[in-house]
């Protein structure tokens, strides 16, 4: 193996790992391409630093690159060399065009789906006893006030949901109420969309501010009915 073999294998392996292996590790997620690019740059920088530590390794590393660029004694690779020399300026031009051309896409808006609640809403305990009667009553309130958007099946697909962006939360999805505590739901139901902090994009949310219309006790019962109906349990720290 020449001085260039290992670095190339390392770069390719790194890319394959970041793009195709990492997302499948439990608890992980696909990396954004900008992050993959950053990691590859870091890997490449590390390789260059490592390879240029000593005089010999430096020559072994840069030598073949220099020979390819100058085109001396590279035989059949001459055509490839011309290809690279033509392709490089074109790529630079293409990148420049991409970064200066006006985009026809509207601005992207990142929205935090579960932003942090105000301090006074963390750690509240549901004061309503978890009895079958209370759960049933909560489901009745849910049907009356929540189901038009969040759906009779707790799936966020109520008849009024279609025009709303962000879409009403799907409580059957394990990434919504199953990840949250009852106190969080209490805050979200009480204050509604307008109560969200700026990272939650409150100007887009259709969630009503129910504290103006429903007593706290009803809200706690709705929370119990929601968890029971969606077959989820509140998150606990035990």
């Amino acid at each position: 193996m020449g001085a260039l073999g290992k670095p190339i294998i390392l770069m390719v392996a790194m890319y394959v790992f970041l793009k195709f292996v990492l997302p499948y590790i439990p608890g992980s997620a696909p990396l954004p391409s900008s992050l993959i690019f950053l990691y590859l740059i870091l890997t490449a920088s590390g390789i260059v630093i490592y390879e240029t530590l000593s005089g010999e390794s430096k020559d072994a590393f840069w030598g073949p690159i220099q020979r390819f660029l100058t085109g001396e004694n590279i035989g059949g690779l001459q055509a490839l060399r011309y290809g690279v020399l033509i392709l490089f300026p074109l790529l630079v031009g293409w990148q420049t065009y991409g970064s200066t051309a006006t985009s026809d896409l509207p601005p992207t808006e990142s929205r935090t789906i579960h932003p942090a609640p105000p301090g006074e809403y963390t750690g509240l305990v549901n004061p309503v006893p978890k009895t079958p009667e209370n759960i049933m009553q909560g489901k009745g309130f849910y049907a009356a006030f929540c189901s038009p958007c969040h759906g009779g099946n707790f799936d966020g697909k109520g008849p009024a949901a279609r025009g709303f962006i962000p879409a009403p939360a799907n409580f059957a999805d394990p990434t919504t109420i199953a990840m949250l505590q009852e106190s969080y739901l209490f805050w979200r139901i009480k204050k509604g969309g307008v109560g969200l902090p700026i990272e939650g994009a409150p100007w887009k949310s259709a969630m009503p501010r129910w504290e103006l219309e429903l007593p706290d006790e009803w809200i706690w019962k709705i929370i119990m009915g929601e968890y029971d109906g969606a077959h989820q349990s509140p998150r606990t720290w035990e």
């Binding site: 020449g2 390719v12 890319y15 993959i36 073949p64 690159i65 390819f68 690279v84």
Partner: peptide, 23 residues
């Protein structure tokens, strides 16, 4: 032997370009 190395550099370059395009 030098050509092997050069070819490898080429492949690495192509891999990087492919990564950029795909990303």
């Amino acid at each position: 032997p030098a050509n092997h190395a050069v070819k490898r550099v080429l492949w690495a370059g192509l891999a990087t370009i492919a990564a950029l395009v795909m990303g």
